[in-house]
């Protein structure tokens, strides 16, 4: 199954830990996971544990416009994309969960 996750809150929110745990569990069970970060969710790329999800084959894309607004630097392995990437995730996944 392809699982999509939208995260719009910053790392201080418990959503980050939940998304990390759900993503790891889904990957362990053989599912594909694509995460899209926007609004304050883009700050999660500075969270080491979160960013390390790319090493577990989790696909992570961020809204580059929100990143630019918040003056955040690029992180290797994370796609600095657009709302088109979110539309692709929504269109392609079997389930999409939103954490906001």
């Amino acid at each position: 199954m392809k699982l999509g996750i939208l995260l719009t809150t910053s790392p201080e929110n418990e959503n980050t830990n939940t998304v990390i745990n759900i993503s790891r569990a889904a990957i362990r069970q053989g599912h594909e996971v694509s995460i899209f970060l926007m609004y304050d969710g883009v700050y999660n790329i500075n969270n080491k544990e979160f960013a390390a999800l790319v090493d577990d084959r989790v696909s992570i894309a961020v809204c580059a416009f929100n990143v630019e607004q918040r003056k955040i630097g690029k992180v290797d392995g994370i796609v600095f994309g657009s709302q088109y990437d979110h539309a692709c995730i929504a269109s392609e996944v079997d389930r999409l969960i939103s954490f906001g």
């Binding site: 929100n66 657009s82 709302q83 088109y84 539309a87």
Partner: peptide, 12 residues
């Protein structure tokens, strides 16, 4: 931002 995202979601 919800509205901007909604515009983007039409792209597929």
């Amino acid at each position: 931002e919800a509205l901007r995202m909604s515009v983007g979601l039409t792209l597929k």
